[in-house]
Computed example of a mutant assay.
Amino acid sequence: MLWFVWQYVYTCFLRFWLKWFLRQITGRCELQRICANCKAGAPRTAKAEHSLRSSKSTVLRGAVDVKEDAVENCVAQIMKEKNIKEQSDPEFKVRLRQCLMQISGYNSLYVSVEELRKQGFDSENEAHEQMLLKLWNLLMPAVKLESRITKQWGDIGFQGDDPKTDFRGMGMLGLTNLVFFSETYTSTARRVLSHASHPKQGYSYAIVGINLTEMAYSLLKNGALKSHFYNTVPGKPQLQHFQQLFCYLVYEFDKFWVEEQPESIMEFNLYREKFHDKVKLLLLDPSITLILTVEPKN
Rank of each mutant, 00 (worst) to 15 (best):
residue 6 W to K: 15
residue 9 V to R: 01
residue 14 L to N: 10
residue 15 R to S: 15
residue 16 F to H: 15
residue 17 W to N: 11
residue 18 L to M: 13
residue 18 L to E: 10
residue 18 L to C: 09
residue 19 K to H: 14
residue 21 F to S: 08
residue 26 T to S: 15
residue 29 C to I: 14
residue 31 L to E: 03
residue 31 L to M: 07
residue 33 R to E: 09
residue 33 R to L: 12
residue 41 G to W: 10
residue 44 R to Y: 11
residue 45 T to C: 12
residue 46 A to F: 11
residue 49 E to W: 13
residue 49 E to D: 14
residue 58 T to C: 15
residue 60 L to H: 02
residue 61 R to V: 05
residue 63 A to F: 04
residue 66 V to F: 05
residue 76 A to C: 12
residue 78 I to Q: 09
residue 82 K to I: 12
residue 88 S to E: 15
residue 90 P to V: 05
residue 97 R to Q: 15
residue 97 R to P: 03
residue 99 C to S: 13
residue 102 Q to F: 02
residue 106 Y to G: 00
residue 107 N to A: 08
residue 110 Y to H: 08
residue 112 S to N: 06
residue 121 F to Y: 02
residue 122 D to R: 05
residue 122 D to C: 08
residue 123 S to Y: 08
residue 124 E to S: 13
residue 129 E to W: 10
residue 133 L to M: 09
residue 133 L to D: 08
residue 133 L to W: 06
residue 134 K to F: 06
residue 140 M to K: 13
residue 141 P to A: 01
residue 144 K to I: 12
residue 146 E to W: 01
residue 148 R to P: 02
residue 154 G to T: 13
residue 155 D to F: 11
residue 156 I to V: 12
residue 158 F to A: 00
residue 159 Q to S: 11
residue 161 D to I: 00
residue 162 D to W: 05
residue 162 D to H: 06
residue 163 P to S: 00
residue 164 K to W: 15
residue 168 R to H: 10
residue 170 M to K: 08
residue 171 G to D: 02
residue 177 N to K: 09
residue 177 N to S: 10
residue 183 E to I: 08
residue 186 T to D: 02
residue 193 L to M: 11
residue 196 A to H: 03
residue 198 H to Y: 01
residue 204 S to Q: 04
residue 206 A to T: 01
residue 207 I to Y: 07
residue 208 V to A: 04
residue 210 I to M: 04
residue 212 L to S: 06
residue 212 L to P: 09
residue 212 L to V: 10
residue 212 L to C: 09
residue 221 K to M: 04
residue 224 A to W: 09
residue 226 K to Y: 05
residue 226 K to T: 00
residue 228 H to F: 07
residue 229 F to G: 13
residue 229 F to Q: 13
residue 229 F to S: 13
residue 231 N to R: 14
residue 240 Q to Y: 14
residue 243 Q to P: 03
residue 247 C to G: 07
residue 249 L to D: 00
residue 252 E to P: 06
residue 253 F to C: 11
residue 257 W to R: 03
residue 258 V to K: 06
residue 259 E to P: 01
residue 260 E to M: 12
residue 264 S to M: 08
residue 265 I to A: 08
residue 266 M to E: 11
residue 270 L to F: 11
residue 272 R to Q: 15
residue 273 E to T: 07
residue 275 F to N: 02
residue 278 K to M: 05
residue 280 K to W: 06
residue 284 L to M: 14
residue 286 P to N: 03
residue 288 I to E: 04
residue 288 I to N: 02
residue 288 I to W: 02
residue 289 T to S: 14
residue 290 L to I: 00
residue 291 I to P: 09
residue 293 T to D: 13
residue 296 P to F: 15
